[in-house]
Write a protein that binds this DNA or RNA. Structure first.
Lengths: 322, 322
DNA sequence: TTGTAGGCGTTATCAG
DNA sequence: CTGATAACGCCTACAA
């Protein structure tokens, strides 16, 4: 690949002059400018971003650490983040921690090696308590995605509040017994529990981890097939909700009559299911937009700043399953 | 961030000595080694990948150009590619062309700027005829993903053969009228047509672009509701198949009795649908594995080589919808 | 075993 | 308006 020095030789000028031309400096005579530009075009010149960055400048690179790109929510998020980053002239190095803290740490080092200008990350651990420390060691700005992290810039959907909305909606629809399928103690679960508690229904909540299909089927049978009040099931995400719907159908349990099902993320498939899936919609584009522009701002304005703690509101998308 | 030169000053040795220690050279005295390592650890040293690469070496960076990460197939692919790349010590810069050729060209330049060691790309245009040219201009190895490109390394699922399998399966199941939903002339469509043709059924094939739901519904009604032979519908991908299933249900058309539906990509949701969706399964992990290791091989062994043209076989996953 | 000198492709700061 | 020169962080000779 051709360099400025080579162009300089070919066009009989000094290398700094080539630099001036290629960077659009006005203080170059017309004929030199033309000669240089012609030569650059002819050889398909592209500046060496590494050399340029070495010079103390920025790399225009953002590290993006996700837990699982194959999850359709994160995939969407990655897409939007890439788009926003591009608008601001950044490219992204993508890492997939696969929910492994060890890998997350490893990637934190890699990101430093490449001297990225900033990092967007979905912390592996919900609490994210070790992240402020990581961020400091990184010595570039960091914005946490979709997780609240104390003492760190973060942009997220308010899971607690969203789950409370779900609880309100379900009680309104007449469900009086509840199942949360996901990790006990996570923000969604807590928000759900709190709101039920406020309505004196906390004792009616059961939390199921719901790993494999067989296990889940057994548990759903015992919870939903016996007579009793209608049951509202809040699934950790749409994939999980889809599995639940499938099992309920196999069990011959009526949805939304006997049991209501609510997903999370509002993935595209929801509207095409039968019954169409009610879900909590995340404002993915806003999250990406806010996170990237905050990161860009911090890159352009270094120095300490009060952490941004941006909790975006969720919207319930009500369809047939509740 | 601390540099070798700074460590050198702190430990009272020369910078190249620091380099030797940090790169594990044996020819350094024990006490210097320890002093240097201690200092490096203390200041959390990470080498500057830019500077190192500038030296004419490799960047350990791979450019990955996708058309749409939010598509669950490509999201899976991205995940696998990242994993394989990591195993070989590469990090990936991810670009999303969004099916825009203009953006694709733009990204080709960006990738050159960062002096990536190689590129993995899903060409925007099916034929991919301008890619061999692009690859040459890139002057790093390129491997095309999931598309056959003449004169370029490529790893893909054989769409033509896969579609032929679908046609055979459908005729076996007694479908005698056919719909392909997707772009006319694409490999899947051609493979489907050819195989039907070989069975004297080509005249029974109709191709629908199927953009919006309303339009598609109208067309499906006119094709499937009138009496006549059973219809086999081959959808371009699972998302599309899901839409078709949803519309057929609304129309009260029996699946798989009156109409059979086959998707493509075998995304996770297929097995949970009702009826469970038959689909063509792509060997995503193999594609990623083969593509990345081929790329790595070409990086390590520069110079001309006969293009690899690796067509992986598809597997039909038969469930309830056909 | 260790240090010195040069260069990778840029940009920035000087002179001229 | 243009050209030297130094510097960024590292590595690879070569020299001591």
């Amino acid at each position: 690949m051709i360099t400025m020095t080579e162009i300089a030789k070919l066009t009989q000028v000094s290398q700094p002059t080539v630099s001036r031309v290629l960077n659009g400096s006005k203080t170059v005579s017309a004929d030199i400018r033309e000669r240089v530009l012609a030569c650059a075009r002819e050889h398909n010149y592209q500046f060496n971003a590494l050399a340029k960055s070495l010079q103390g400048g920025k790399t225009q690179l953002l590290g993006v650490l996700l837990t699982d790109v194959s999850n359709s929510f994160f995939a969407d998020l990655a897409k939007q983040v890439e788009a926003k980053a591009r608008e601001l002239g950044y490219s992204i190095i993508l890492f997939n921690s696969d929910y492994s803290s060890a890998r997350e740490q490893e990637y934190l080092d890699v990101v430093r090696r490449y001297r990225v200008d900033g990092v967007l990350a979905v912390p592996v651990l919900e609490g994210g308590s070790l992240w402020p420390g990581c961020a400091q060691r990184l010595d570039v700005p960091v914005v946490a995605l979709t997780r609240q992290v104390e003492g760190l810039d973060c942009v997220y959907l308010d899971h607690v509040e969203a789950a409370a909305q779900v609880a309100r909606h379900m009680t309104q629809r007449g469900y009086r017994q509840f199942l949360f399928i996901g990790q006990d103690g996570c923000p969604k679960c807590e928000g759900f529990r709190q709101e039920l508690s406020a309505r004196g229904l906390a004792s009616q909540l059961t939390v199921l981890e719901g790993q494999d299909d067989e296990q889940l089927k057994k548990e759903l049978r015992s919870h939903c097939q016996r007579p009793g009040p209608r049951t509202g099931i809040f699934a950790n995400n749409d994939v999980c909700a889809l599995r639940v719907l499938s099992i309920l159908r196999a069990l011959g349990i009526a949805v939304p009559g006997r049991v209501g099902v609510m997903g999370f993320d509002d993935t595209y498939m929801g509207r095409y299911l039968h019954p169409a899936l009610s879900s909590v919609s995340q404002p993915i584009e806003q999250i990406a937009q806010q996170a990237v522009s905050r990161l860009a701002y911090r890159i352009d304005n270094p120095g300490p700043a009060a952490p941004l703690n941006l909790a975006l509101p969720a919207a319930l998308v009500l369809r047939e399953s509740t």
